[in-house]
Amino acid sequence: MKTIVAAASLACVIHASVAYAQSVTAEATAHAGHSTSTEEVSVAGAQLRAFGDAVSGVRFFAEAALAKSSDEDGDSDAFGAAYPYAGRVQVIEAYAERMFRPRNGLLSIRAGRYRTPFGISSGSEQGYVGFLRAPLIRYDGYYALSNNFLEHGADVVVGVPKLTLEASVGAPDEVGTAVRRSDVDSVVRLQGFHGPFIVGVSRIWTMPYQDPRFSSGRAVFTGIDLRWMYEGIALRGEWLTGKPFDGTTTTGWYVDVIVHRVRMGPVTAVARVERTDYDVPARPSRDLHATRQTLGARIRIIEGLSAQVNVLHQSGLPNYGDTALDVGVTYSIRRDLRRH
């Protein structure tokens, strides 16, 4: 794996650079929240990130997070949209990338530690868009994938803007409570873009995160994701199916909408419906069939300060109530450290 990362890093730094405005930006985000339900969870956390141009056309992104939750066991998924609550400083992403634009084509190479590029996976699309929880199929404990999955490896995107193929080879490098067993894993993703539509198909081959005493084989998932946006209305969705380990299957989906229209001022409205089904044919008593509906809003109070409110109704999640109210506030600032 080190060889792959080293080779990708070398590919990033060779080749003459193209002249661009050089910039380095630092950004800090702090958040706090409380969930009122049978869970009664309070959280606080912060992220610090820096990104921009390094040398010779190479760009970098580095992000660290420190967050703490009153839910010591990590059972609740409240406020787990994109960051973990480990109670210690953790490096989330740290990578270098280089982009080439041969004629109308696109070639991008990235090496380091990055979010697993399956489906709608970027931190900015999962965290702070208005939802305070990750989709069921993208959270640690629900037998599918997790927004806290990270890869330590190399990733290549090739194609034209309308159609790109992405391939990632790496080793699991998680920051959440679901920690996959170490081995080489890979992700491929095909993405098409036309008008307001963006469609992607992803497949991942990786290792299970469940206890090895009862989970054998590899985890394999295939997913389809769709984004559509027009005049301030963004519609997104993902569907995936696969096996978290041998003898089991998980199929799930979510559809959400994010609305910010001209007359809504500082308010962005969000809504999501979702379902996940985890089946163990040999032991049906272990099945998980969960649904959740979320309504909420993100309200910009002043520049950099926003509040998020989510009301949830859910079923099929053991130990959790049917409803929850999540409230969070976020403050974010950024500074340009270098621009010329």
Binding site: M99, S108, V157, F193, P196, H260
Partner: peptide, 25 residues
């Protein structure tokens, strides 16, 4: 490499270009 959306709702020219990926214009 991440998606961006460009919009202007408040004053001046009002538009929303939707979400689009790397390389697109």
């Amino acid at each position: 490499r991440v998606f961006h959306n460009v919009f202007s709702f408040r004053d001046g020219k009002r538009f929303d270009l939707g979400m689009y990926p790397v390389g697109a214009l």
